[in-house]
Design a protein around this nucleic acid. Structure first.
Lengths: 342, 342
DNA sequence: CTTTAGCACTCTAATACCGAGAGTGCTAAA
DNA sequence: TTTAGCACTCTCGGTATTAGAGTGCTAAAG
């Protein structure tokens, strides 16, 4: 579709714009990148690229700026053209920073979001491993002040969850003991999701026999294994709004980003998709408040299956190369950690 | 120091500025508030007030704007001059909104920050009840994958905490059982802080006898009862940066606010102070990045002693009256909840 | 046919200038 | 002590001007 030379010019323009945030003119391209072409030729090429929708000029006498489509080209073109050496150096430095997260078993995933933001000056996000996707190590139920039950759930992935359930009637510690023993003996090692399903099935069976006590117990079990829709971790908003990009739309954008619901859905969607980092550029974003932003997301896995997502949110003119490097490294890191770290 | 009339004028000016965010001129004061004085007289008074440091004019031909000192006067003057009726209505409406927090035992304090922000368009903060300040209901230790210990701590205030401790050597489930039984029998009902202290004392005693096993156990106990410095809850940043006030200093301010360390210290300080809401206005703020912001904070109590803080962060020209009403109501609400809710 | 030099053209950003409006401070009278 | 009157100051919005950057087009060169 584009000939080689045109591609190179487009690539150079996007790269240069990402670095400088200033519309890039024909003269600049000839100077900085040595195509051995005159500005006039470059201008012709740029005019073509504009016609094809890869570039626009903010106004007649400015240079050109990439469109979302331009960025898309850049990102797809990227893998073949990474400046490998420098990037490798950065990567190893970044990896050592990740290593320090291993200290805190519970904090790896939250820490990943933090690290991403700190190293990019964009926003780092991570969706924690959903308890439903994990396997039961043990669950404990305690009676608390008569009418409450304290639940502690421990998974084989090193996640601890707790909750307090308010009951209608008091349940004796002995009964609780028996319920949790039952759960642990029957279900240790199984996926939380599966257990919940089986419990529901059992429940409906028991109901047929009208055994209220057992039904109650089942209900407690089910409750004990249900947790509120996972939050996501997000760091770097203050840095981000300090970026010169959005001085106007700040409010709108800040709100979109803080809307965790949207975010959660987005991250979950990406979580399904296999492979490396996905890049969503500006208008490609399904959430319309986030046009003008780009996201680089990658799933991390647990036992071979994708289990959560980490990523970066930044302006469309973010440093994709760097971002992709970081996000992929982070996802790999968490995957490794989950499989052998704990 | 100021005569009655001067005070009234100052009060009127501050109030009016808070409402409109525009420098207020002499003519406006005579119109809006019926002092039966001519603009010229008001001008004289205003000139005096400026000399005394309560007002400044942004430039020669603008109206006056309160200084921090002006706000301080206003806040101190406020209690005697609340427009009681309207405020009462607001208060009852607000209280019902708070009521809905009772649903979720764990979320009251977090919810308080949310509610504060939602009802003020400023930033709501709350510092959770520190586990150290609570009393032990029970603690449980579980062996996890050999070299780890999972701890669950349940306090009489309804707080559950958990953590995972990495050990050098494996500790048998039986030993853990004995340790937790010991803790529960010996210390149930005691303050976590006290327990920690006593454990340290015991430890040094034991050390003298070189009993490694017991020392180890003590150490586990102590670890189990130690938790990372509490986070604080904070909501409303996106709304806040949308306010017209700080279009320039956004970055700086956003960073100051996100710096949880500073915040935690600040909140803890206020937590010590008895009585109703404390108001920190602009330059009164010990944290210099937060000059230009005001905070309204009030401690909530637990068993008679102050246990945490809730509050609002806003621009110096915030609606103090409303803010104080809300913060005090929220603090009272949490205090009540802790004493009888659970 | 492609590339290039030259040049006129367009648009922005910076600067200065002007006039209207707002609000003041001061003076002199009530 | 208060007030009316008035000159003064400063901001804000609009307009004009200019310098500079970068383009598109044309016509010549490779």
């Amino acid at each position: 579709m584009l000939n080689k030379r045109t591609e190179q010019v487009l690539f150079a323009i996007v790269q240069s714009y990402i670095a400088s945030h200033e519309p890039v003119g024909s003269r600049f391209v000839t100077k900085k990148y040595s195509f051995n072409l005159s500005p006039a030729t470059i201008r012709n090429i740029m005019a073509d690229l504009e016609e094809l929708g890869f570039l626009i000029q903010p106004h007649t006498s400015a240079g050109r700026v990439p469109t979302d489509r331009g960025y898309r080209f850049y990102v797809d073109y990227l893998p073949e053209h990474m400046a490998a050496v420098e990037e490798k150096n950065f990567l190893t430095a970044y990896m050592t920073r990740l290593e320090s997260l291993k200290e805190d078993l519970n904090g790896v995933i939250e820490g990943a979001a933090k690290t991403l933001s700190e190293n990019s000056s964009y926003i780092g996000v991570s969706a924690p491993l959903k308890p439903e996707k994990t396997t039961l190590n043990r669950v404990e139920l305690f009676s608390y002040k008569g009418r409450h039950i304290a639940v502690m759930l421990l998974t084989n992935e090193g996640i601890i969850k707790h909750k307090l359930i308010r009951m209608e009637q008091e349940v004796s510690p002995r009964t609780l003991r028996r319920i949790s023993d039952y759960l642990n003996q029957e279900f240790a090692g199984y996926g939380i999701d599966d257990i919940r399903l089986r419990l529901v099935r059992e429940m409906s069976k028991e109901k047929a026999f009208c055994d209220i006590l057992i039904t109650k117990a089942m209900e407690i079990c089910r409750e004990a294994l249900t947790f509120p829709a996972g939050d996501i971790y997000m760091y770097g908003l203050p840095e981000f709004i300090g970026l010169p990009d959005f001085s106007d739309r700040i409010k709108e954008i800040a709100r979109a980003i803080e809307d965790k619901h949207l975010m959660v859905r987005l991250l979950e969607k990406v979580c399904q998709e296999p492979g490396g980092a996905s890049v969503l550029i500006g208008s490609e974003n399904p959430v319309k408040e986030m046009r003008g932003l780009s996201m680089v997301l990658a799933p991390y896995g647990q036992g071979g299956r994708p289990a959560g997502t980490v990523g970066i949110i930044g302006p469309t003119r973010m440093d994709y190369n760097r971002a992709i490097t970081m996000v992929e490294a982070t996802a790999r890191f968490i995957t490794d950690f989950l499989s052998d770290g704990a």
